[in-house]
Lab assay of single mutants.
Amino acid sequence: MDSLVVLVLCLSCLLLLSLWRQSSGRGKLPPGPTPLPVIGNILQIGIKDISKSLTNLSKVYGPVFTLYFGLKPIVVLHGYEAVKEALIDLGEEFSGRGIFPLAERANRGFGIVFSNGKKWKEIRRFSLMTLRNFGMGKRSIEDRVQEEARCLVEELRKTKASPCDPTFILGCAPCNVICSIIFHKRFDYKDQQFLNLMEKLNENIKILSSPWIQICNNFSPIIDYFPGTHNKLLKNVAFMKSYILEKVKEHQESMDMNNPQDFIDCFLMKMEKEKHNQPSEFTIESLENTAVDLFGAGTETTSTTLRYALLLLLKHPEVTAKVQEEIERVIGRNRSPCMQDRSHMPYTDAVVHEVQRYIDLLPTSLPHAVTCDIKFRNYLIPKGTTILISLTSVLHDNKEFPNPEMFDPHHFLDEGGNFKKSKYFMPFSAGKRICVGEALAGMELFLFLTSILQNFNLKSLVDPKNLDTTPVVNGFASVPPFYQLCFIPV
């Protein structure tokens, strides 16, 4: 009986604490739906499609509103004006990374994606500088992407125009580009180590996009005490870190300090320079996690976009025909596509942009946080508050993009057929937390897609009208449904 009384008292205290925290903070924060004790607004949000729920709530509470995930307040920004004001106009104040408990377990605050403060700034600055020195957006990395595009075309030829699921092959190409940047090595598509790495990356994007992960991140005790797919994700990350550590040891034994070959060499050189400046942010643990982040951000996002792009091109054969006509006119058949071609191919450029806009790969991006107490639109948001960005509300804005739910390359073309930029184009987020590999991803999408369409016609196994382009999961990332196609050599 005594234990029951204690339990009831504990629960009562928890409920009172929950109510007090919510009521004391709500006077400062933007308005929002009334949260339930302990669980907050979790029942009012469709976990399978958070973005749709945010759109519905914005119609009631406006472009800036507050939700509670458990006891934790989260300020939501919906629509271009609110997102721009926060991420661009007040970029420094909104540059923090929001709480992501599962990532905390995986990387302990290291790396480039989930770190904060001085650690994040130094690692991000170093990573950007190193990638630029190796030619991100310049010639040397373009050579690597072109080489991988040629290998991709050869792998597709091996399908002999038979029906195939493109998931694996389209994942190999961007993964190999990242391998060449980090390890100075590309792998054969049949290499077992490479296959294991690909498998872990593919599993992780599916797990991260599941409703279960949303629950884990908002009720963090689940991570330590409950079984579930989150444990598989943590094991996959541990596998990748151990693999990278092996490569780091190989580099330490063979590195030429006067001739760095890749990202690992550059990081080890930085560690050597910083060894007298303790404590340094440049450690082996930081290198492991930064490399894992580059793999995660640079492989599955690009391969998922490529997979979605081919599905949309199957669905819209008239678009595919126009792209192939432009390829034939500008590039021809006797040389590989290059980035200089893009400025002469406005329709193809528009298609690449429209694919990214339409699929809305990361509907709410990753959570941000404010780095200080900030007054925002007459609300006071306390330091450390998590900020949720609705990228969907920007990419699918119906004023900027008429009929935003329709796939239409003319969203990025003017009346004369010239490519038209849009400030609403934010597939990689915006501001200080914009994806480090934005330029690389854009290069890969253009070169891989043009190389495929230069060499193959795409054949659907069903009537294009019957192809479903609805994402199968739409949590962290929008993942396309399973499909097969035939690559018919031109």
Rank of each mutant, 00 (worst) to 15 (best):
G332C: 02
K247C: 09
T130H: 13
T450E: 00
V490L: 14
L413P: 01
G384P: 01
V330H: 11
N231S: 14
I99Q: 15
K72G: 03
M406A: 12
R186V: 03
L306I: 10
G40A: 03
F239S: 13
R307C: 06
N202E: 10
R357S: 01
E81V: 08
V76M: 02
S303T: 08
V237S: 11
H410R: 10
E354I: 02
R342W: 04
I112R: 10
P174W: 01
Q278W: 11
F448V: 02
F94A: 03
I141C: 03
P480C: 15
F126T: 05
Q356C: 12
L102A: 07
S3A: 11
S3F: 12
L461H: 08
A82G: 03
L268E: 05
L71S: 13
R357F: 00
I284S: 09
R132G: 10
R139V: 13
Q192M: 07
K241L: 01
E104Q: 10
K315D: 02
L9F: 08
V355T: 06
N107H: 15
E92T: 10
V145T: 02
E92I: 06
L4F: 15
K118A: 14
V83Y: 07
R150N: 08
K52N: 15
C164S: 05
T450Q: 00
V6D: 02
S429M: 07
P409F: 01
K235H: 11
E400K: 02
K28I: 14
D191R: 00
L43I: 12
I74R: 03
C13N: 03
L90E: 10
F487E: 00
L54C: 09
E285D: 14
M406W: 10
I39M: 07
V113S: 15
L306Y: 00
M240E: 02
Y68G: 01
M136W: 15
D143H: 13
S286C: 13
K190S: 11
G98H: 07
G417Y: 09
D468A: 12
K28G: 12
I112A: 13
L395Q: 11
S162M: 13
T450C: 12
D2P: 13
T130E: 08
K275A: 08
Q484P: 04
N218Q: 09
P260R: 10
D191K: 02
F219H: 04
T348E: 01
P211R: 10
S58E: 08
F114C: 14
T283W: 04
G46D: 12
L71F: 12
L102I: 11
S95R: 04
S460P: 10
A477D: 06
R333C: 12
F126V: 07
L208E: 14
V473Q: 15
L366R: 06
L19S: 04
L453P: 00
V355E: 01
M406Q: 11
T229G: 13
N457A: 07
A103S: 12
V75Y: 01
N56V: 13
P317Y: 06
K420L: 09
L313S: 03
P464I: 04
S209E: 10
P33R: 01
L362P: 05
D262E: 02
N455S: 13
G111W: 05
A86S: 06
S220L: 07
C175S: 05
G25W: 14
N258S: 14
K235D: 14
T364V: 11
L391V: 06
M198C: 14
L195Y: 06
N204I: 10
Q278P: 14
L201A: 06
P37C: 03
V352S: 04
A321L: 11
E326D: 05
E93D: 09
T302G: 11
L131C: 06
K158L: 13
R333G: 12
S429G: 15
L170G: 00
F428D: 02
S95Y: 05
G137S: 13
P464M: 06
G62Y: 00
G417L: 10
D49Y: 02
P221A: 08
A86R: 01
K270S: 09
E250V: 08
E250L: 09
R307I: 06
I74V: 15
T450S: 12
F446A: 00
N474Q: 12
N403H: 13
E93T: 09
C10P: 02
S23R: 09
R139K: 10
V83D: 01
Q22Y: 09
K383H: 06
Q252T: 11
S51A: 13
P33D: 00
R377E: 02
Q484L: 04
E438P: 03
I45K: 01
S127I: 15
R132M: 13
D262T: 06
K383N: 07
K232Q: 13
R139H: 09
V351L: 06
K48S: 12
M426W: 08
E288G: 13
M339W: 12
N378M: 03
K190R: 13
L128C: 12
M271H: 06
H251P: 02
R125C: 12
L458C: 03
L29E: 02
P402I: 15
A309G: 09
Y483P: 03
L29H: 04
L461K: 15
V462R: 10
M255T: 13
F226E: 01
E85S: 10
V177I: 12
V394T: 13
E354C: 03
S53V: 10
N133A: 10
K249H: 11
I374H: 04
V330F: 06
I207T: 07
S53E: 14
G96N: 10
T34W: 13
K138W: 13
I181D: 00
A161E: 06
V76W: 00
K28D: 08
V370Y: 12
E203H: 06
Y61R: 01
Q146L: 09
Q22P: 13
K273M: 13
N107Q: 04
S3M: 12
K383I: 04
I434Y: 08
Y61G: 00
I50H: 09
E400A: 10
N466I: 08
L43Y: 06
F100R: 06
F94H: 05
L71W: 15
L361E: 09
V75G: 00
I434G: 07
S451N: 15
D191N: 12
G475K: 08
D414L: 04
P174V: 07
Q484C: 10
Y308H: 08
Y68P: 00
R342T: 03
F219E: 01
D341Y: 07
S162P: 00
T229M: 13
K28V: 14
L14M: 08
I181C: 06
I434K: 11
